[in-house]
């Protein structure tokens, strides 16, 4: 029982990370029908920029080893801001170099160009930080907290709280604010949005900024749990993408739900047979695609006349 509770809690924490990245996929896909296939590398960049941010705030060089004393809650918050801003700017760069030239063209040029952009980021990260994994201490320490007997890391609670808070914010902004309604208008029809006087290009850039920042945030949140490695991006992004497919790529709430579902599934199956974790995820995808191809909360795409 305790083991299951423990798996549920860490599964939800991991799911929060998947959900953040999946939400990033949703935001750019709903506005431009494209997304960043290099999102995993953005997540890596987010983690490493955060590590360097922490070092800078501690008054050290950006590639020095990071000690637990260097990581205070305030500095962690500071590095979060740095990481999200830097990643947001990377998102702008990605959009103008790898997405915009190919949007609306036949073929899948944007798939290759975003993968290529990710590879460039990965190689830059390798050149700057090297191939070995970097341990990023949690600002909350590593003392296991007992919840009904189940042990949970403080960082896992932070991941869960932070990801839910950010997603709630985005949900409220999208539904209640003028800018959120404009983003949804762009997602529904770029032409109609333009006729409202909405600057569609600006909204699209904004979508890539938010999406990339979310990947950065996800990297920074997960680094203290898994250690930051240049190679961790692909698996995480693939699972986040699976989460988006399971929940429904065109529905933000679906993407969040998919993220948490996948995290839970992975943790619970891992408890039973660790080697079946990945298999179970892709079994779930096949099952969902067979029964509800648009995803659990996804809307069936209706051809607009």
């Amino acid at each position: 029982m305790v083991a299951i509770l423990q798996a549920v809690l860490s599964g939800l924490a991991l799911g929060g990370v998947y959900a953040l990245v999946a939400l990033g996929f949703n935001i750019t896909h709903s506005t431009t029908k494209t997304f960043n296939f290099g999102q995993g590398e953005f997540l890596v960049a987010g983690a490493f920029v955060a590590v360097s941010g922490l070092l800078l705030l501690a008054g050290k060089g950006i590639t020095d080893p990071l000690n637990p004393d260097d990581v205070t809650l305030l500095r962690y918050a500071g590095s979060m801001v740095i990481s999200m801003v830097v990643l947001g700017l990377l998102g702008v760069l990605l959009y103008y170099t790898a997405v915009r030239p190919f949007v609306g063209q036949a073929g899948l040029a944007w798939v290759m160009s975003t993968i290529g952009f990710g590879i460039i980021i990965q190689n830059v990260a390798l050149a700057v930080w090297g191939p070995s994994a970097v341990v990023m201490p949690s600002p909350l320490g590593n003392d296991v907290i007992r919840v009904f007997g189940a042990g949970i890391l403080p960082q896992e609670i932070m991941v869960l709280v932070a990801s839910i808070a950010v997603m709630l914010c985005i949900d409220v902004v999208m539904r209640k604010t003028k800018i959120g309604k404009a983003v949804r208008a762009v997602a529904q029809s770029m032409d109609a949005a333009t006729l409202m006087g909405i600057n569609v290009s600006a909204i699209v850039v904004l979508a890539f900024v938010v999406s990339s920042s979310l990947a950065g945030l996800a990297g920074l949140l997960i680094a203290p749990i898994t250690t930051a490695s240049v190679y961790m991006g692909l698996t995480l992004a693939l699972k986040a993408f699976s989460a988006a497919i399971v929940g429904g790529l065109n529905n933000p709430r679906g993407c969040m739900l998919g993220g948490f579902l996948l995290g839970l599934l992975e943790a619970l199956v891992g408890l039973w047979h660790a080697e079946l974790r990945e298999i179970s995820i892709f079994m779930l995808i096949i099952l969902v695609l067979a029964l509800k191809p648009e995803g659990l909360l996804g809307q069936r795409q209706v051809e607009k006349v």
Binding site: Q188, L195, V305
Partner: peptide, 12 residues
């Protein structure tokens, strides 16, 4: 402009 095919925002 009221565009051809109306183009209201269906989800709003």
């Amino acid at each position: 402009q009221s565009p051809e095919g109306r183009q209201v925002f269906p989800d709003q």
